[in-house]
Design a protein around this nucleic acid. Sequence first.
DNA 1: ATAGGGTTAG
Length: 623
Amino acid sequence: MNKSINVCSKVLNTLRLKNPKLLFLESCNNLSQLKIIHGYMIRTHIIFDIFAVSRLICLCTDPSSGTFSLDYAHDVFSQIETPNLFIYNALIKGFSSEDPIKSFRFYSELLRADIVPDNLSFPFLVRACSQLEAIDMGIQAHGQVIKHGFENDVYVQNNLVHMYSTCGDVKAANEVFQRMVCPNVVSWTSMIAGLFKIGDVVMARELFDKMPERNLVTWSTMISGCAKNNCFDEAVELFHVLKEKGVKANETVMVSVISSYAHLGAIGLGEKAHDYIVKNNLSLNVILGTALVDMYARCGCIEKAIKVFNEMPEKDVLSWTAVIAGLAMHGYAERALWFFWEMVKSGLKPRDITFTYLLSACSHGGLVEKGLELFESMKREYGIEPRLEHYGCIVDLLGRAGKLAEAEKFVLRMPVKPNAPIWGALLGACRIHKNAEIAERVGNVLIPLLPEHSGYYVLLSNIYARTNRWENVEATRQMMKEKGVKKQPGYSLIEVDGKVHKFTMGEKSHAETEMIERTWDEILQRIRLAGYTGNTSDAFFDIDEEEKESAIHRHSEKLAIAYGIMRTKAPTVIRIVKNLRVCEDCHHATKLISKVFGRQLIVRDRNRFHHFREGSCSCMDYW
DNA sequence: ATAGGGTTAG
């Protein structure tokens, strides 16, 4: 008994010490221990000591402390008769990232209790608004800042800049920024983040080049900002500059780097980045691990992706979803389902995005019944309301399987108003199954919905061409011209010797153009002997690039493949990443190339992977 | 009498 009193008084002493954290953590490192001490404090009335009770609250609101529990902090708080400013501030901070609305409530309660907030009340109150991306609340908080005279506090200003930036109001952010007497690296970094948020990569870069001092967070913001705005080359280049400077990257930076290589399909560079992570002893946390899984999957190495996944010490829903997405992209529907059930067994709840990939796996794998079942179970079993994408997946699922009438019926009867991608999915199915009748009906609804989008016009005109409705082809193309529709430029990427080469249609700017042309001519000769006729054919417009195949309008993947054949030797796999869908002519040509040249080619297009080998493709010509 | 502050990631 004496002994336990001793322990408790020791704990209490630490509670009352000026900096008791370390000592205290020695004796209390989980919530149940904390609860025991809390009980003791109540019994001994020490709970009425405002300093002791605020230590308790601080421990509950510290996310790194093992005793973290906002609910418990709230309970303790509600038992305090007259909380002081310190306690309110601790709560505003504690709740600002996980339950930001409560931060606001604590702040109003503080005012109601006639307590005057200080400089430490505002940074996290403003931060709560950033978390919510609620600019109206942010403006209110800003008003409070001014009212209480803290608009010149650098911490408050930085949070305001950050808040306006995350809310997408760069102008307001800049107003605060410009008024700052001495903006620091945090202020600059938040401004840069704001510019990336609205997609202004150029201004962001300008600010980055201009700022007086940069830290690792700045670099990380730059690299992730570039990656988020599809400037993967620039992201990767920044990483190289960082390495040259001799700065060691951290996990956060590597997540963006890995994700950039994933999008570029640069497996060689991606593996190097993986080595970098291992060599520098960076911890494989859930996010970084998931990024690696996604990278290997997107680079066509699905088995390696699964290996990395299996070795991850901690997995969450998004990690599982990354594997499922990878399998879906590769057309392995059954395996995607297997991983889904394993995930459910492990006790994790699927998210709506999980179902998007799962349904797309079913659709690519032709698993109609399974897909419909899963769609039904979404709401019933998992409480997830299907969103438009999910409806789109079902349209795709039915459509691909040739159940066009059912698909059309499904669209007309769905409880939410179908948007352009839904009609687009139906149109895509009409293309596969050469159904001009439904296509025409779909086209009539779709085109007014999306006057600027080119893909669907091309798809439609292509369907008409396939079914020999030439007047309709002409009318569609005329409509495109009138509306000034721009086509999306197609490109293909290939990584050779640690460099990513980008080809666009009819590319002449590559340093080795002449050689590439000659190689393609050779390839053409050899595949013609194997039966390739394409390319001279009639008025066939491909789905996405919309151009007739000719020497001038050579599709980008043909150039990329030629480059791959020219610069690599078997058994090296030729890996291509394309931003649009593969056209039929290119698909046919690639199959023949794999056979004639005895090479394995892996093409990732907008929708899925195509593994070409010995004259056939893993998609079974169904994409 | 005694305490507490900002920016980056799948």
